[in-house]
């Protein structure tokens, strides 16, 4: 029992024949039912707002997302499964939030939305919702390779005053209880997610900041290269796991 807790610090990512289990499976049955029911899932309020914004003319061009992308249910289907991804034009790694903001600045000539603002959460959740049930499948080779390597290193290195790595909780101790919580595999397939503790929808990076805070480590800024690279690594860990946005979490 104790021996099993003293696991190697660097656990190589196992070659999963099956995808890792989604965090949803660690919720109570009641919360799982609420997540699955569109009428009861509070995150759907943001998705509805995103649907409205999709049609709304913005910025100097007066174009809406729909002006270019048409019907999101077809044009955005499957897109979220591939994010974070490298933008061919700039070479930057973009998560879905950044990608949407890039369309605001590049194509709408509008200001980017701040991280965690309701419009950005709404549009992100709306775009991700179009991939509901589809398996995560990010690119980690080519231009993405250095970002992936940085994220992998981050996941496995001890950090903070409490000196714990992400892997020590989410690989080595997944399924065990940390006081009231059961530790999941730390996947991002449900984000943006509605967290009861927040009483709001929040991004994956907001969740990452909570984990950093928990070990008394630096909470990197929203959109920092550190968290972006980590998001890419988490997305690869979630290879094959179905998108569940907006998930409900405690």
């Amino acid at each position: 029992m104790i021996a099993s807790l003293i696991t190697p610090l660097i656990t190589p990512l196992p070659t999963h024949a099956d995808p890792l289990p989604s965090g949803t499976g660690f919720l109570s049955e009641d919360l799982q039912a609420r997540q699955a029911d569109e009428a009861a899932n509070p995150g759907m309020l943001w998705v509805d707002e995103g649907a409205r914004l999709w049609q709304s003319p913005q910025g100097a061009t007066g174009a809406s997302c729909a002006s270019c992308h048409g019907d999101a249910t077809t044009s955005m289907r499957g897109i979220a499964t591939r994010y974070p991804a490298v933008d061919a034009t700039s070479g930057a790694l973009l998560n879905l939030e950044d990608r949407i903001n890039l369309c605001r600045t590049r194509h709408q000539k509008a200001e980017p939305y701040p991280y965690e603002s309701d419009p950005l959460l709404g549009l992100t959740a709306y775009v991700a919702r179009q991939s509901l049930g589809l398996p995560m499948d990010v690119e980690t080779g080519g231009a993405a390779a250095p970002f992936y390597a940085a994220g992998e290193a981050f996941f496995h290195r001890r950090q903070g005053q409490l000196n714990l790595s992400c892997a020590q909780c989410h690989d080595d101790n997944a399924g065990r209880s940390l006081r009231g919580d059961t530790i999941s595999h730390g996947l991002g397939n449900g984000y943006p997610a509605y967290r009861l503790e927040w009483q709001s929808l929040g991004s994956l990076q907001r969740r990452l900041r909570s984990c950093s805070f928990g070990v008394r480590a630096v909470q990197f800024d929203y959109g920092s290269p550190d968290y972006l690279a980590l998001e890419l690594y988490l997305a690869k860990r979630a290879q094959g796991v179905a998108i569940e946005t907006p998930a409900i979490r405690r």
């Binding site: 807790l5 003293i6 696991t7 190697p8 610090l9 290195r157 001890r158 950090q159 903070g160 005053q161 409490l162 000196n163 714990l164 020590q168 909780c169 080595d172 101790n173 950093s212 805070f213 008394r216 480590a217 630096v218 909470q219």
Partner: peptide, 28 residues
């Protein structure tokens, strides 16, 4: 005692990485 332990070091400040500035340079 066990180099790979998950138990935090409560009276140590060296060799820690990315410590939150609010907790830096003092033991837990």
């Amino acid at each position: 005692i066990s180099p790979r332990t998950i138990m935090p070091p409560y009276y140590r400040i060296e060799g820690l990485r990315d410590v939150d500035p609010a907790y830096r340079d003092r033991p837990a």
